[in-house]
Design a protein around this nucleic acid. Structure first.
Lengths: 170, 170
DNA sequence: TTGGAAAGTCAACAAGGCTGACTTAAAACA
DNA sequence: TGTTTTAAGTCAGCCTTGTTGACTTTCCAA
């Protein structure tokens, strides 16, 4: 479990872990971990004929019920046309509801229906199970470090999105 | 910078960080960080008409020069047909060389050419720059935790691949 | 000598990105 | 009031990268 490459940093702020070799290991860790991270929801989505794009839409609509299409677009970083294709099927299937804005009638506000919430729960629970196991295996200190490094790795725009929804406790 | 959710764990193995809210933040961190993680190489690839699939192939061929197609397949987790399409263009473009096996002539052993190595270096250097910055910002302890959690998040098969190439110092 | 493994190829298909062009409705502005 | 801008949605077409299925060639090993 202990790191092999002298990351312990007994006294000072050791720079040993910044060798290209250590960085490459970090890169590969991201690659392999991301595969594990998406594997469980992918299996659930497949049974219903959905893909990751649907998962992302569902996740962020749940995250902030009532948000507009434009907000969601900025979050996902895809084109309107790309999102629309996904959104249309979710609305047709009764998982998402699109309501005309009251103040600004051009806007559409997006909500998960009960069915949509149910799917969201099963997807995020699958992901949480793995996350929980990884957290338990690594321990509390590791979790804090994990989050710090990931946050530092984000593009500034995305980091703002991430931090913005930091404490909005659903 | 310090975690808000009581991850400090003053005495025992606090379980406070395992709330659904904390887990959800970890999930979103993975999502946003992965975007940042791939952004820089993606820009380089685009200029040459390649995609992420090419990057992955190049990365792992460089990782273990001379490996067979089957080995690479297991690493990447895609179908032979999918890999072949990518591999063919890389060979045509002179970035990858495929040599018939000497012992077993059915096998093809894959190597990066000088051009291939050059592209690999520019891709991985772009990724390392970001990684290095994130590591510096987060500090040594955070990096160890980051790696621990990611490793625990991998599927067992992938984890074995990851660990297998742990200390093969290029 | 024959069975099966390794590699490669062709065809067809799907998801999910993209661009560009265009419409509709409504808000904002001059 | 009339014009411009914005939000959303749609149509068409393209690309990458994944999939299955069927098939061939090569060649090792039982």
């Amino acid at each position: 479990m202990a790191e092999g490459g002298g990351a312990a940093s007994p006294g000072g702020e050791s720079l040993l872990f910044l060798t290209d070799e250590q960085l490459r290991k970090g890169i590969e860790a991201m690659f392999f971990a991301y595969r594990g991270f998406t594997a469980d929801p992918d299996r659930i989505l497949e049974t219903r004929g959905y893909g990751r794009a649907h998962h992302r839409a569902i996740h962020f609509i749940n995250r902030q019920q009532g948000q507009t299409v434009n907000t969601l677009l900025a979050m996902l970083g895809v084109t309107k046309q790309s999102l629309n294709r996904v959104l249309r099927t979710l609305i047709e299937d009764g998982l998402v509801e699109s309501r005309v804005g009251r103040k600004d009638k051009r806007e559409r506000h997006l909500f998960l229906t009960e069915d949509g919430k149910a799917l969201e729960r099963s997807l995020s629970e699958a992901q949480r199970v793995r996350m929980r196991a990884a957290y338990r295996a690594a321990g509390p200190a590791a979790v804090a470090g994990f989050r710090q490094v990931l946050e530092a790795m984000m593009d500034p725009d995305l980091r703002r999105h991430y931090q913005a929804m930091k404490d909005s406790g659903t």
